[in-house]
Design a protein around this nucleic acid. Structure first.
Length: 214
DNA sequence: ATGACGATTTACT
DNA sequence: GTAAATCGTCATA
């Protein structure tokens, strides 16, 4: 399966968010294990003008620096004192747009994913975790795949421990694409209402309020 | 040096 | 449905 290239990533965030649906996010661990899942839910953050974006007003700090990199740059941040979330920068260098990866449908390495989820969780019975829930949420998928701040700034268009592979066949027509407002950005005023969340209808791995009609 | 706040998840009433 | 967990980051001083 071909990997996405710089040209694939250097497009407007809303377009990239939709294009990523059906693609596979792949993580190669240091021990050689390959973990992966099909991207089924994303959110676009449109950069300096987007009040919900960390880069709103071109706020450029050590943390947000990767958002200003070229399309394909990983932006991983730590939040709520315990969670990591992963984005892929969109557009060109200097334009801080990005796409938040919100959920995956696991396809390889589920055993390892369960281990990762169990390690950092005092949950009752981690072994009983349904596969569909392993990567059902931005922080869950980072934990499952072993992704954290060390990966922020990584170039996914270059060989490395994380990359994206193109969609197999016409996934979109099989499931159909749903849209809704982004989750957890109520502070963003009018920008909170924009339908910049994209997901594959019918996927059991989609996170959060699925109340939105579909 | 300090304080307010999360692009969340989980557990519990 | 509500609340707690938990700390890096950033603006303010």
């Amino acid at each position: 399966m071909p990997r996405l290239t710089r040209a694939n990533f250097c497009v407007q965030a809303d377009r990239l968010a939709r294009a990523l649906l059906g693609c596979t996010l792949v993580r190669r661990l240091d021990n050689g294990a390959r973990l992966s899942g099909v991207i089924v839910e994303t959110e676009a953050y449109l950069g300096a003008r987007d009040r919900a974006a960390h880069s709103f007003g071109s706020r450029r700090t050590p943390r947000t620096e990767p958002m200003f990199g070229p399309g394909g740059t990983a932006y991983v941040y730590f939040t709520y004192g315990m969670h990591h979330c992963m984005n892929i920068a969109a557009s060109v260098a200097g334009d801080p747009q990005a796409v938040l990866i919100r959920a995956l449908e696991p396809s390889e390495g589920m055993i390892m994913m369960k281990q990762h989820r169990a390690e950092s969780s005092r949950a009752s019975d981690p072994g009983a975790l349904p596969e569909a829930l392993l990567c059902s949420g931005p922080a869950r998928l980072c934990l499952a795949l072993g992704i954290d701040r060390r990966h922020s700034g990584l170039d996914l268009a270059r060989p490395g421990p994380i990359w994206v592979e193109g969609p197999k066949g016409n996934v979109v027509s099989e499931h159909g694409v749903g849209r809704s407002a982004r989750i957890g950005v109520g502070y963003a005023g009018p920008w909170a209402l924009r339908e910049l969340r994209y997901y594959l209808r019918g996927s059991p791995a989609v996170s959060g309020p699925r109340k939105v009609k579909g």
